[in-house]
Design a protein around this nucleic acid. Sequence first.
DNA 1: AGTTTCGGTGAACACGCGTTCACTGAAACT
DNA 2: AGTTTCAGTGAACGCGTGTTCACCGAAACT
Lengths: 215, 215
Amino acid sequence: MTVMPDPSTAPPESRGERKERTRRAILDAALALCEESSMAALSLRQVAKEVGIVPTAFYRHFESLESLGLALVDESFVSLRAMLRDVRRSDPSHEDIIDGSIQTLVDHVHAQRSHFAFIARERAAGPPLVRRAIRHEIELCERELATDLARLPGNESWSSEDLQVLANLMVMAMVATAEAILAASPRPEIEQQIIETARTQLRMVLVGAVNWRSS
Amino acid sequence: MTVMPDPSTAPPESRGERKERTRRAILDAALALCEESSMAALSLRQVAKEVGIVPTAFYRHFESLESLGLALVDESFVSLRAMLRDVRRSDPSHEDIIDGSIQTLVDHVHAQRSHFAFIARERAAGPPLVRRAIRHEIELCERELATDLARLPGNESWSSEDLQVLANLMVMAMVATAEAILAASPRPEIEQQIIETARTQLRMVLVGAVNWRSS
DNA sequence: AGTTTCGGTGAACACGCGTTCACTGAAACT
DNA sequence: AGTTTCAGTGAACGCGTGTTCACCGAAACT
């Protein structure tokens, strides 16, 4: 609960290290507290109590709850980009590229549960600035995916607009799948069904993609 | 601001009519107030002030903010189902079925803006019970769409599971499109681009669907 | 005409909120 | 050793919160 280490057993810690530790504690507490509703229903005093500091000490780390929110957006998208990197790393020539990608998604959603939940929630309901920041980050992810898709063999004839549209569709399906997994857990049998659904959907979209323009 | 009619000009009004009028005013005020954040950041006193009644009078109509939320879910899904009915009404043999459906979506999103925004927001960030209610309603819509798809010619060979998965994909795209329209307004050129994107995506999915099983 | 019903009132309750300010005390620097 | 820096303190402010209660007065019923 408290940030203070036990002075008898704790190793020596510089001032900077302690500040960073409190900052982390604030971020974690905020992430945990807004899990049940939204950032909009989060109070400075709640966070401070959870961290184990007095309310005013909060201002030593963030100038407002909104800037805390923006920091959480940054942090959450580090997790999301790590996932995209893992998805990209898989061998594109492999047949199970769909299964692999979905498994990577599932793994990361479980490992960084709060970050993905934060993005899903605040994307629609966060403070205006937080909302904007999230939408912007997602748009960047779509553009990245679009350039990745452009490099894939067989896509030479695609216009960049169509690639962008396909990337948008895929990201939207990914976001929805992540949301569904979060809403389902911890019920493995429902989660398995969501995974099956996502797999089939990705295959359907893929079938649509390979027959595009040629139909 | 106030619910009270001017006694000099107002027509006579029964007790039941007045109660219903106040109830409506509460629903509208809540819808308007949580537009900028979420139900989670809504207070009874705020709503009462907006309606023009004293806070305690709220309890004459709803037993809590959460039950108000559930009433708003019901109301919002009346709008959504009205939209689905309009979509379904269009001639399925017509070539522009995609354009027609999307136009219907756009029209309804504009006409019932607050209802669609409410669903999009609270689906992810509302109080747990509200979230559950919305997810359940959306699932019902998916099942309805799946049975509709089953009646379409050329789908005889589809398994009911695949139809369900396709319906899920389409509803997910519809929800995302509605969200995008709400986030874009009032910028007509961006909205037009969203519509174009949705049109292309629906075509892609359709191409995938017609080539399903046969590929 | 007399009585009941009930939507709306207003005071009061204990508590949580964001923000201010002067402060403490140990770490970090000179 | 002496000074500065600064994360964390704690009291105080004015306001908003949900909920309770006894009360009012007009519509609705008998």
